[in-house]
Design a protein around this nucleic acid. Structure first.
Lengths: 140, 140
DNA sequence: ATCGCTGCAAATTATTTGCAAAATG
DNA sequence: CATTTTGCAAATAATTTGCAGCGAT
């Protein structure tokens, strides 16, 4: 499977930055590489435990911070919920959250991206990062 | 001053909804009516105390919840910070946060609003609410 | 053999809540 | 006067951290 491939590339990035790959981190990297549902710290902890990797929740948090600092994952803070995480090795995108089911979807829109940069520029600023979330409900 | 006017209109909305106007709430409403800097609960508490209104922080939180439920104020949850609040009697707008100073600015862009609705619609959803925040740095 | 990393439990931060007393409409 | 609302302190929830021992390079 290519998830293993992805996990290895994450490890490589970390090694390059001088971050040690421990048993716990290796396990979390594989779980993150396989996740496509934006899990939160508790879910990652449960998955790691289910996978037989003994990891404490504190270590999950510490690892997530390290991975975010290295640009391997991105932290997502949606309204009224624990922080969720997603691998960062993908195209930039924004999120759409179904308020009924909690499902998180991704979307890309270049026009919006350009308009944002334009707005910031007009006000004399450069965008460092941005956050665009659409809280939606399935149309009936 | 017209802030007093605004505070009264807030009170009217609450009375209409059967919410009691206590000394503490009246004080907070005036502080909110005069605030144009998106204060958080602690700041509102400090301002209320400074204004001589004895209010507990718990009451500040409970009042803010009530005001939000009545649509009098909006709660803003920016990255890595306590929730901030702003009066809701204004045109819809999004926020731009200077990552260096923490300053919060407002902006409106109809094209972005339309594009968002379009994106949701194309995916079969209706937008319930959305959040667009630009974290920026002053251009040099 | 270093120096970073982990587990555990205790500490933080922001916010919420139970309960008896106080205040509003 | 019937209900809300308040204050206080204790409870939560998510996340962070101190410290002593363990383990990766």
């Amino acid at each position: 499977m290519e998830n293993e491939q992805r996990a290895r590339s994450f490890e490589a990035a970390l090694r390059r930055a001088g971050v040690r790959i421990t048993r716990q981190r290796a396990a979390l990297l594989r779980i993150l590489a396989a996740a496509d549902d934006h899990p939160d710290a508790t879910q990652l902890h449960q998955r790691a435990m289910a996978a037989g990797a003994g990891v404490s929740l504190a270590t999950v948090y510490r690892t997530l911070s390290a991975l975010e600092a290295q640009g391997v994952i991105m932290k997502l803070e949606f309204e009224g919920a624990a922080a969720r995480f997603e691998p960062a090795d993908q195209q930039h995108h924004d999120h759409m959250i179904d308020v009924e089911t909690g499902e998180v979807m991704e979307f890309v829109n270049d026009r919006i991206e350009r308009l944002q940069a334009e707005i910031a520029r007009e006000m004399g600023y450069d965008i460092v990062r941005h956050r665009l979330e659409l809280y939606v409900r399935k149309r009936r």
